[in-house]
Design a protein around this nucleic acid. Structure first.
Ligand code: FES
Ligand code: FES
Lengths: 149, 149
DNA sequence: CCCCATCCTCACGATTCAATAGGAATTGCT
DNA sequence: AGCAATTCCTATTGAATCGTGAGGATGGGG
């Protein structure tokens, strides 16, 4: 599940990607534009900053900007920071693997094999889409149709 | 995330699929073999029974059996019963759609478009794998290698 | 009638999620 | 220096969900 934290974070990143690079956006501005509780977004952007996805500047004229070009930011990375590993189960995660206590033979565990496949499918989508592509898809009407059909 | 409920349920179903059709398995037997808390598995199998995936028989000689052949049971369906919709976010779900309160224009929402894709990828994997295939993959060594590589 | 095993409902502690509160720190402007 | 704007930090709260356990009701087999 994508939590609200992840959802809000993604929306905020899209918002930032829509800006001229270097033009900072205020938290309050992003919050209002996307119907996100301001204080909540505050902490979310803090995490994104600690993770190096955005830069921030305090005081008057401050705000948040993308740390890199939107073409270089993969959506999967953002989600991992905010919501944790993509894999549906820990034993199938590549970035933060952990063994299952209840499974004796991991290599013959049907659940794990299935979830490895699921994780792969998910990662293929999320790690190949960049923030720029995500924003483009949201603006372009034709692209939307191709998804819906 | 696949919860423990989903995981235990899948493991139990695999266990049942390994039986001769018609041979019932006891809850206690499945629980022991897979290191699942018996009482928890009890309720899980109850839900699977209400959903029509397994049949049950009380009393001596009773237990659980698959309601249909393992070839006809899709893994995605089991997960949906136990853990809810596959889609990472409600507005991207086909089986239990719900609108997002905070998004004004759903058709131009980048998050939703992305998650539609993610849901599709996940469903392609989980709705095409049957219980029988899952069990086979767990037994067969060669198949495992092809996944790992 | 007596086992046996499923069935049902409730209840609990722990964890996570979503949001809020309150203020400290930093920057720009005058 | 002083003020206003804005990020930054930490803690707390309330609600929901998760994982599990207790106790007993129900019903079939012999
Ligand atoms: S090893 Fe993780 S589910 Fe079996
Ligand atoms: S419509 Fe659901 S995330 Fe925007």
């Amino acid at each position: 599940m994508l939590t609200k934290k992840g959802k809000y974070g993604l929306k905020a990143m899209v918002h930032l990607a829509a800006r001229e690079p270097g033009e900072p956006s205020l938290v309050s501005e992003i919050a209002e534009a996307n119907n996100i509780p301001k204080k909540f977004l505050d902490t979310i952007l803090g995490e994104l900053r600690n993770a190096g996805f955005v830069n921030s500047k305090k005081g008057k004229g401050g705000g948040y900007t993308l740390a890199r070009s939107a073409h270089l930011i993969r959506v999967g990375h953002i989600i991992r920071i905010l919501d944790g590993p993509l894999a549906p189960i820990q034993c199938a995660s590549k970035t933060s693997y952990r063994r299952c206590d209840d499974c004796t033979d991991e290599r013959h565990c049907g659940v794990r094999i299935l979830m490895l496949e699921a994780r792969e499918a998910l990662a293929t989508v999320l790690d190949n889409r960049t923030l720029a592509e995500m924003r483009a898809a949201a603006q372009d009407d034709e692209l939307i149709l191709s998804y819906v059909i």
